[in-house]
Computed example of a mutant assay.
Amino acid sequence: MKELKIDKIEGFTPQIGHLVSQMNYVRKTTLEAVRDLTTYELDFLPSKDGNSIGALLYHMAAVEKGFQIEIFDGRSPNEQEMAEWGAPYSLGEKGREDIKGYSLEFYISKLEEVRSRTLQKFANLNDDWLYENRLWDNHPSNNYFIWFHVFEDEINHRGQIRMIRKMLSRNV
Protein backbone atom coordinates (compact mmCIF):
# COMPACT_ATOMS: atom_id res chain seq x y z
CA MET A 1 0.00 0.00 0.00
CA LYS A 2 1.43 3.38 -0.96
CA GLU A 3 1.55 6.12 1.62
CA LEU A 4 -0.09 9.42 0.81
CA LYS A 5 1.31 11.87 3.32
CA ILE A 6 2.51 15.41 3.59
CA ASP A 7 5.61 14.91 5.66
CA LYS A 8 9.14 16.02 6.42
CA ILE A 9 11.68 15.31 3.69
CA GLU A 10 15.34 14.81 4.44
CA GLY A 11 17.44 17.72 3.19
CA PHE A 12 14.73 20.32 3.77
CA THR A 13 13.51 22.20 6.82
CA PRO A 14 10.12 20.88 8.08
CA GLN A 15 7.78 23.37 6.38
CA ILE A 16 9.75 23.42 3.14
CA GLY A 17 9.63 19.62 3.24
CA HIS A 18 5.85 19.80 3.52
CA LEU A 19 5.73 22.11 0.51
CA VAL A 20 8.06 19.82 -1.47
CA SER A 21 6.01 16.73 -0.60
CA GLN A 22 2.92 18.46 -1.99
CA MET A 23 4.77 19.56 -5.12
CA ASN A 24 6.09 16.00 -5.59
CA TYR A 25 2.62 14.48 -5.36
CA VAL A 26 1.17 16.97 -7.82
CA ARG A 27 3.99 16.29 -10.27
CA LYS A 28 3.56 12.52 -9.89
CA THR A 29 -0.13 12.78 -10.78
CA THR A 30 0.60 15.14 -13.67
CA LEU A 31 3.07 12.65 -15.13
CA GLU A 32 0.52 9.85 -14.70
CA ALA A 33 -2.02 11.95 -16.62
CA VAL A 34 0.28 12.26 -19.66
CA ARG A 35 1.87 8.80 -19.62
CA ASP A 36 2.46 7.35 -23.10
CA LEU A 37 1.06 10.30 -25.05
CA THR A 38 2.29 10.63 -28.62
CA THR A 39 3.43 13.86 -30.23
CA TYR A 40 0.14 13.95 -32.15
CA GLU A 41 -1.81 13.70 -28.88
CA LEU A 42 0.41 16.31 -27.20
CA ASP A 43 -0.24 18.72 -30.12
CA PHE A 44 -4.01 18.17 -30.33
CA LEU A 45 -5.98 21.41 -29.92
CA PRO A 46 -9.37 20.93 -28.27
CA SER A 47 -10.65 24.19 -29.83
CA LYS A 48 -9.34 26.97 -32.06
CA ASP A 49 -8.52 29.11 -28.99
CA GLY A 50 -7.48 26.23 -26.74
CA ASN A 51 -4.15 24.95 -25.58
CA SER A 52 -2.61 21.59 -26.34
CA ILE A 53 -1.48 19.18 -23.65
CA GLY A 54 2.11 19.86 -24.69
CA ALA A 55 1.60 23.60 -24.32
CA LEU A 56 0.09 23.11 -20.87
CA LEU A 57 3.05 20.98 -19.76
CA TYR A 58 5.51 23.56 -21.07
CA HIS A 59 3.46 26.27 -19.34
CA MET A 60 3.80 24.45 -16.00
CA ALA A 61 7.57 24.54 -16.37
CA ALA A 62 7.49 28.17 -17.52
CA VAL A 63 5.44 29.33 -14.53
CA GLU A 64 7.91 27.71 -12.14
CA LYS A 65 10.84 29.13 -14.14
CA GLY A 66 9.28 32.59 -13.96
CA PHE A 67 8.99 32.42 -10.19
CA GLN A 68 12.56 31.15 -9.91
CA ILE A 69 13.76 34.22 -11.80
CA GLU A 70 11.55 36.59 -9.81
CA ILE A 71 12.05 35.09 -6.35
CA PHE A 72 15.47 33.41 -6.39
CA ASP A 73 17.21 35.80 -8.81
CA GLY A 74 15.29 38.94 -7.79
CA ARG A 75 14.70 40.20 -11.31
CA SER A 76 12.53 39.99 -14.41
CA PRO A 77 13.29 37.55 -17.23
CA ASN A 78 15.93 38.74 -19.68
CA GLU A 79 15.65 38.69 -23.47
CA GLN A 80 17.14 35.20 -23.83
CA GLU A 81 14.81 33.79 -21.15
CA MET A 82 11.82 35.44 -22.80
CA ALA A 83 12.79 33.88 -26.15
CA GLU A 84 12.74 30.41 -24.57
CA TRP A 85 9.99 30.76 -21.98
CA GLY A 86 7.73 33.61 -23.19
CA ALA A 87 5.38 31.58 -25.41
CA PRO A 88 4.89 28.75 -22.91
CA TYR A 89 4.39 31.24 -20.09
CA SER A 90 1.74 33.27 -21.92
CA LEU A 91 0.25 30.53 -24.14
CA GLY A 92 -2.42 32.02 -26.44
CA GLU A 93 -1.82 32.38 -30.17
CA LYS A 94 1.98 32.47 -29.80
CA GLY A 95 1.85 29.25 -27.79
CA ARG A 96 -0.34 27.56 -30.41
CA GLU A 97 2.13 28.61 -33.14
CA ASP A 98 5.38 27.78 -31.32
CA ILE A 99 4.61 24.82 -29.06
CA LYS A 100 4.15 21.77 -31.24
CA GLY A 101 6.11 18.88 -32.61
CA TYR A 102 7.81 17.97 -29.33
CA SER A 103 7.85 14.54 -27.73
CA LEU A 104 6.64 13.79 -24.23
CA GLU A 105 10.30 13.36 -23.22
CA PHE A 106 10.95 17.00 -24.22
CA TYR A 107 8.24 18.31 -21.90
CA ILE A 108 9.23 16.01 -19.05
CA SER A 109 12.82 17.17 -19.44
CA LYS A 110 11.74 20.82 -19.14
CA LEU A 111 9.66 20.04 -16.05
CA GLU A 112 12.55 18.14 -14.43
CA GLU A 113 15.15 20.78 -15.34
CA VAL A 114 13.13 23.54 -13.73
CA ARG A 115 12.08 21.52 -10.68
CA SER A 116 15.67 20.48 -10.04
CA ARG A 117 16.70 24.11 -9.59
CA THR A 118 13.72 24.80 -7.32
CA LEU A 119 14.67 21.89 -5.07
CA GLN A 120 18.33 22.93 -4.98
CA LYS A 121 17.30 26.42 -3.87
CA PHE A 122 14.77 25.11 -1.33
CA ALA A 123 17.47 22.92 0.26
CA ASN A 124 19.40 26.08 1.14
CA LEU A 125 16.46 27.98 2.64
CA ASN A 126 14.74 27.76 6.02
CA ASP A 127 11.12 27.83 7.12
CA ASP A 128 11.29 31.53 8.04
CA TRP A 129 11.94 32.28 4.35
CA LEU A 130 8.53 30.81 3.47
CA TYR A 131 6.80 33.44 5.59
CA GLU A 132 8.77 36.45 4.34
CA ASN A 133 6.37 39.10 3.08
CA ARG A 134 6.57 40.27 -0.48
CA LEU A 135 4.36 42.00 -2.99
CA TRP A 136 3.15 39.72 -5.76
CA ASP A 137 0.87 40.83 -8.56
CA ASN A 138 0.18 44.00 -6.53
CA HIS A 139 -1.06 41.97 -3.55
CA PRO A 140 0.58 41.38 -0.18
CA SER A 141 1.88 37.84 -0.24
CA ASN A 142 4.67 35.61 1.02
CA ASN A 143 7.00 33.01 -0.45
CA TYR A 144 4.84 30.16 0.83
CA PHE A 145 1.79 31.36 -1.07
CA ILE A 146 3.79 32.00 -4.24
CA TRP A 147 5.21 28.48 -4.29
CA PHE A 148 1.79 27.08 -3.40
CA HIS A 149 0.54 28.92 -6.49
CA VAL A 150 3.13 27.13 -8.64
CA PHE A 151 1.66 23.72 -7.91
CA GLU A 152 -1.91 25.02 -7.68
CA ASP A 153 -1.50 26.25 -11.28
CA GLU A 154 -0.22 22.79 -12.23
CA ILE A 155 -3.27 21.16 -10.63
CA ASN A 156 -5.61 23.39 -12.64
CA HIS A 157 -3.85 22.59 -15.90
CA ARG A 158 -3.68 18.90 -15.06
CA GLY A 159 -7.47 18.99 -14.92
CA GLN A 160 -7.50 20.50 -18.41
CA ILE A 161 -5.07 17.81 -19.58
CA ARG A 162 -7.37 15.07 -18.29
CA MET A 163 -10.32 16.61 -20.14
CA ILE A 164 -8.34 16.92 -23.38
CA ARG A 165 -7.16 13.34 -23.03
CA LYS A 166 -10.80 12.21 -22.78
CA MET A 167 -11.58 14.24 -25.91
CA LEU A 168 -8.72 12.48 -27.67
CA SER A 169 -10.03 9.03 -26.80
CA ARG A 170 -13.32 9.94 -28.49
CA ASN A 171 -11.56 11.30 -31.59
CA VAL A 172 -9.31 8.30 -32.23
Rank of each mutant, 00 (worst) to 15 (best):
L19P: 05
V20K: 12
V20I: 13
S21M: 05
Q22V: 06
Q22P: 00
M23L: 15
N24E: 15
V26N: 11
K28G: 11
T29W: 05
T30Y: 02
L31Q: 04
L31P: 03
E32P: 02
E32Y: 02
V34Q: 09
V34H: 09
R35W: 01
L37E: 01
T38L: 06
T39V: 02
T39L: 01
Y40N: 13
Y40T: 15
Y40R: 14
L42T: 07
L42Y: 12
D43K: 02
F44N: 01
L45N: 06
P46Y: 08
P46R: 04
S47T: 15
S47C: 08
K48W: 06
K48L: 11
K48T: 14
D49P: 00
G50P: 09
N51V: 10
S52M: 06
G54M: 10
G54C: 05
A55C: 15
A55W: 12
L56E: 12
L56V: 14
L57A: 00
Y58M: 01
Y58K: 08
Y58A: 14
H59V: 09
M60S: 14
A61N: 02
A61P: 00
A61Q: 06
A62S: 10
A62M: 03
V63H: 10
V63P: 06
E64W: 07
K65P: 00
G66F: 12
G66S: 14
G66Y: 14
Q68D: 04
I71N: 11
F72D: 05
D73F: 09
G74L: 02
S76H: 11
P77L: 10
Q80C: 00
Q80V: 13
E81I: 08
M82W: 12
E84G: 07
E84K: 15
W85N: 08
G86M: 04
P88L: 05
P88M: 03
P88V: 08
P88Q: 01
S90T: 13
S90I: 06
L91M: 08
G92K: 06
E93K: 06
E93R: 00
G95E: 03
G95K: 03
R96Q: 12
R96K: 13
R96W: 11
E97Y: 05
D98K: 15
I99W: 03
I99Q: 00
I99K: 00
K100C: 07
G101T: 02
Y102M: 10
Y102N: 11
L104W: 09
Y107M: 00
Y107W: 06
Y107V: 01
I108S: 00
I108K: 15
L111F: 12
E113F: 11
V114N: 07
R115S: 07
R115D: 04
S116R: 11
S116F: 08
T118F: 03
L119V: 02
L119K: 06
L119P: 04
L125E: 14
N126F: 02
D127Y: 02
W129T: 09
L130F: 03
L130E: 05
L130S: 08
Y131S: 12
Y131K: 14
Y131R: 09
E132I: 00
W136V: 04
W136I: 03
W136Y: 12
D137H: 10
D137F: 11
S141I: 07
N142L: 05
N142W: 07
Y144N: 08
F145R: 15
F145M: 14
F145D: 12
I146P: 03
I146A: 08
F148P: 04
H149S: 06
H149G: 00
F151D: 03
D153Y: 09
D153L: 01
